[in-house]
């Protein structure tokens, strides 16, 4: 089912946290709400599930206007960051609770619980209490409980934040699989860009209560709308380099780069160069000294202090003989240079 927020505004007392936000999540789509801490992701989520009242704007599930429908009647499944399982109930009772509230017959409930337990693969853990389950298992129970009512929309609030790194990887795939299998419309709230990029069809990147860009992960990575977006996505992160646009791009006091095609402006700008677009494989042109090397197993990160000012980061396959203090002369992939105004707007 399609979900549509129109001119959504939320204020807590005198503080307006979100102003006139528009967001449409297509039917069966998985959308990430991504942004730094405090940008209003949870607030948006709470407004969609009905826990918070909207100060202004409207919310539609399909054609149905649910703006003032109480949470209980909205048909939204939510998975909370700490799972919020009911500690005094077994996994089975937890999952079946929404149906029990709807007064479904016992046999029906048991059948449905079994179906969902199979979907999230915890069929043999049903008679355990939450305290006797691992984090990943609790997560699956929470997911099953959120899905059992066959909700119109599934909301996930930082569902992976409490898991260790390995389990996080596994659950990432699991959640995506379950979402695909059921074809449910889902919104994932996260501040982890890797999670957003790997799990979702589209990403809404938020900052200070506004969506600054809404796009597919690939396009957002390759074609960011602003310096903020470029800086937020990518790991290791992009490097920014102040430059002066004239005939060529003057970097620091002594070095220059060729002007990328299509760049119109003159004067002070900021260049964004991703680590994979800087290095010996891109030829030569920028001189500097290696000031930092961080091995990461398959690859290693290298920070280069450019002569005349500025630092660029490169990512190289392990085995390249680069040592701390080496002098290097590396090139930049010209077509991939991103240019921003000093205010951070993409040029």
């Amino acid at each position: 089912m399609e979900l549509r927020l129109e001119k959504f505004t939320k204020a807590f007392g005198p503080v307006t946290v979100i102003q006139d936000m528009d967001l449409t999540v297509g039917s069966g789509e998985m959308m990430a709400l991504l942004g730094p801490s405090g940008c209003g992701k949870s607030t948006t989520l709470f407004a969609i599930c009905g826990i918070h009242k909207m100060t202004g704007g409207r919310l539609y599930f399909g054609d149905r206007d649910v703006t003032s429908v109480p949470a209980q009647q909205r048909s939204v499944g939510v998975v909370f960051q700490n799972y919020a399982l009911y500690p005094h109930m077994t996994a089975e009772q937890n999952i079946g609770f929404p149906l029990k509230v709807m007064r479904q017959p016992k046999a029906e409930i048991a059948k449905e619980v079994q179906r969902l337990a199979d979907l999230v693969q915890i069929g043999d853990l049903l008679d355990r209490r939450p305290a006797q389950l691992s984090g990943g298992q609790q997560q699956r129970v929470a997911l099953a409980r959120a899905m059992i009512r066959k909700p119109d929309v599934l909301l996930l609030d930082e569902p992976l934040a409490n898991l260790d790194a390995k389990l996080r990887l596994e659950m990432r795939a699991e959640i995506r699989r379950i979402q695909r299998e059921t074809g449910i419309t889902a919104i994932l709230v996260t501040h982890d860009q890797v999670e957003a990029m790997s799990m979702c069809d589209r990403i809404a990147l938020m900052r200070d209560g506004k969506i600054v860009q809404l796009d597919t992960p690939e396009r957002m990575y390759a074609d960011p709308a602003s310096q903020f977006v470029a800086g937020f996505l990518g790991n290791p992160p992009i490097s920014f380099l102040p430059a002066r646009a004239g005939e060529q791009l003057a970097i620091g006091q002594s070095q220059v780069l060729p002007r990328p095609a299509g760049l119109e402006v003159q004067g002070d700008i900021v260049l964004g160069i991703r680590p994979e677009h800087f290095g010996p494989q891109h030829g030569q042109g920028l001189h500097g000294e290696v000031i930092f090397v961080e091995p990461q197993g398959r690859e290693e990160l290298v920070d280069v202090q450019l002569d005349g000012g500025g630092i660029l980061r490169a990512i190289l396959p392990t085995g390249d003989p680069v040592k701390l203090g080496d002098r290097v002369n590396w090139g930049v992939s010209g077509g991939n240079i991103l240019a921003f105004s000093t205010e951070g707007v993409r040029l």
Binding site: A71, Q72, Q73, V76, V78, A84, Y86, P87, M102, R149
Partner: peptide, 24 residues
Amino acid sequence: EIEMAGVQDGASRFRVWWELVMPQ
């Protein structure tokens, strides 16, 4: 979150109190 989950699961505030919060 326990109460929020209860509300999302369709229970009234009274029921949330009685069935989910009281046991805690």
